[in-house]
Lab assay of single mutants.
Amino acid sequence: MQRVNMIMAESPGLITICLLGYLLSAECTVFLDHENANKILNRPKRYNSGKLEEFVQGNLERECMEEKCSFEEAREVFENTERTTEFWKQYVDGDQCESNPCLNGGSCKDDINSYECWCPFGFEGKNCELDVTCNIKNGRCEQFCKNSADNKVVCSCTEGYRLAENQKSCEPAVPFPCGRVSVSQTSKLTRAETVFPDVDYVNSTEAETILDNITQSTQSFNDFTRVVGGEDAKPGQFPWQVVLNGKVDAFCGGSIVNEKWIVTAAHCVETGVKITVVAGEHNIEETEHTEQKRNVIRIIPHHNYNAAINKYNHDIALLELDEPLVLNSYVTPICIADKEYTNIFLKFGSGYVSGWGRVFHKGRSALVLQYLRVPLVDRATCLRSTKFTIYNNMFCAGFHEGGRDSCQGDSGGPHVTEVEGTSFLTGIISWGEECAMKGKYGIYTKVSRYVNWIKEKTKLT
């Protein structure tokens, strides 16, 4: 034993070699072989497995989906700052455009905790909710729209109204504003409101030439003092309507412009014939205590009207009353817009006519005020429907199939267009061939041609 100890002390290297040989010859039971080890760690190889990531292109799944990435790591994937920024906006807080917040056709661009709407022409605001041009839906104005110097929408209202708090709607500024039905039992019968379409306001006024200088022999019209197929109006439903009495009662109609003036057809009036105007009328054979009678003290036909040349060209006249009318729910003026808007309103496509005229061709006159909704007829169809001249200051309205029309005794009465609950004068009943005849239409004086003249002559002093 002493000898062994001496050998170990003198030859430590020998001992180490012996131990190493023993270990190498022993069977290893701690580690699995290569094949079995792979069965336990069965993990798919990654895209760049075996390579240094710093030297390969980034992978979106590896960089940002398996674990949260930084902007720089995302930049490695896209290799483009702009594309990385677009991805980053949604990656950080989701897609803010998912709810489609942009209105009126706006395009949404996502941002971090926010979004941006790219608005089409005519709109602005956070969600493109603000109209900035009158060309689109009248700028959301209830009545009139004008573009300011910086191309912003400025709404306005006709006389007797003021802008509401929203700067879009119009509200009454006087007790009985024009064009409004205020009798409670008839307010439910107000005709369907007309909503502004998209309009090209630059070209809204037709490029028409008034044929002022045409000389033409007097034409022989049949029954051209021209509501057939209409309905009984309720008291106060058309408070701007008046009836004219002269040699015979209810020979023509008219509309209240203001307390002192009536507008009617020029062919209705004769110099030297006494005319009485009755406002607030409903049943011409009954006294309903809503009527107001006034005498006409002055007749002003349009300066281009000449019955000797043509009885229905420039067929418009103004009547001055001896005493002002007292405005109330049964006696209310009709609204008159400017030339541009009167023309736009007419193009809405349908209007209402009213009167006490004959209820059928050569038949009896109506006792109760009649009204009828009539569609506008395109000019080409209008011209083809008659052998008589249709001037540019006239328009056609009615039904091709016949059966409904204005008729004798309705002449001078109103053709009105309702705009968001307020009625505007767009025409004056003038003439036609018979009444409600198939293929024939009622012919009306186009008020847009005469609004400046009306307003100039009827100013209240």
Results as ranks from 00 to 15, higher is better:
49 S>Q: 15
325 L>F: 13
406 S>Q: 13
234 K>H: 10
169 S>H: 06
394 M>S: 06
286 E>T: 07
13 G>F: 09
365 S>M: 14
11 S>G: 15
82 E>N: 08
198 D>Y: 09
360 F>R: 14
359 V>D: 09
187 S>I: 11
99 S>Q: 15
459 K>Y: 13
262 I>K: 01
71 F>S: 12
385 S>C: 12
277 V>K: 00
11 S>D: 03
276 T>L: 04
107 S>M: 08
128 C>Y: 01
381 T>N: 10
104 N>A: 04
127 N>V: 08
255 S>T: 13
35 E>K: 08
48 N>M: 12
237 Q>D: 05
149 A>I: 11
204 S>I: 07
197 P>G: 10
278 V>I: 05
232 D>T: 11
400 H>Y: 14
406 S>K: 12
301 P>W: 08
300 I>D: 02
7 I>R: 15
295 N>A: 06
208 E>M: 09
79 E>V: 15
390 I>T: 10
197 P>A: 09
179 G>I: 01
252 C>N: 01
413 G>N: 07
383 L>W: 15
413 G>T: 10
322 D>G: 06
199 V>K: 09
199 V>L: 09
393 N>I: 02
461 T>Q: 08
15 I>F: 05
180 R>D: 01
54 E>P: 09
305 Y>C: 01
425 L>M: 04
168 K>V: 08
227 V>Y: 08
420 E>R: 15
327 L>I: 12
21 G>K: 03
58 G>Q: 04
161 Y>F: 09
334 I>D: 00
183 V>C: 04
413 G>Q: 08
225 T>M: 09
262 I>Y: 00
230 G>W: 13
154 V>I: 12
12 P>L: 15
108 C>M: 02
393 N>P: 02
328 N>Q: 02
29 T>V: 15
284 I>K: 07
148 S>V: 09
336 I>A: 01
381 T>M: 11
29 T>I: 14
125 G>H: 02
274 K>R: 09
345 F>D: 01
122 G>Q: 06
23 L>V: 11
342 T>Q: 03
93 D>C: 04
190 T>E: 10
235 P>N: 05
409 G>Y: 12
72 E>V: 15
415 H>C: 02
367 L>I: 11
237 Q>E: 05
426 T>L: 01
26 A>N: 02
376 L>E: 03
453 W>A: 01
408 Q>Y: 13
409 G>L: 06
216 Q>S: 10
459 K>I: 10
180 R>N: 01
231 E>Q: 08
196 F>H: 10
299 I>L: 05
319 L>V: 07
116 E>P: 02
58 G>P: 14
352 Y>Q: 03
151 N>Y: 08
159 E>V: 07
281 E>M: 10
23 L>K: 00
164 A>N: 08
399 F>K: 04
358 R>C: 05
428 I>D: 00
349 G>A: 07
9 A>H: 08
174 V>R: 10
82 E>W: 04
296 V>F: 00
246 G>M: 03
425 L>T: 01
320 E>Y: 03
26 A>D: 00
192 A>V: 10
372 L>H: 14
432 G>W: 05
447 V>Y: 00
287 T>A: 11
174 V>D: 07
424 F>N: 01
135 N>T: 15
432 G>N: 09
386 T>Q: 09
325 L>V: 03
79 E>I: 15
76 E>D: 08
458 T>D: 01
90 Q>H: 13
415 H>D: 01
22 Y>L: 06
396 C>Q: 02
360 F>Y: 14
58 G>I: 07
228 V>A: 11
4 V>W: 08
87 F>A: 13
28 C>W: 01
290 T>D: 04
273 V>E: 02
386 T>I: 11
286 E>R: 07
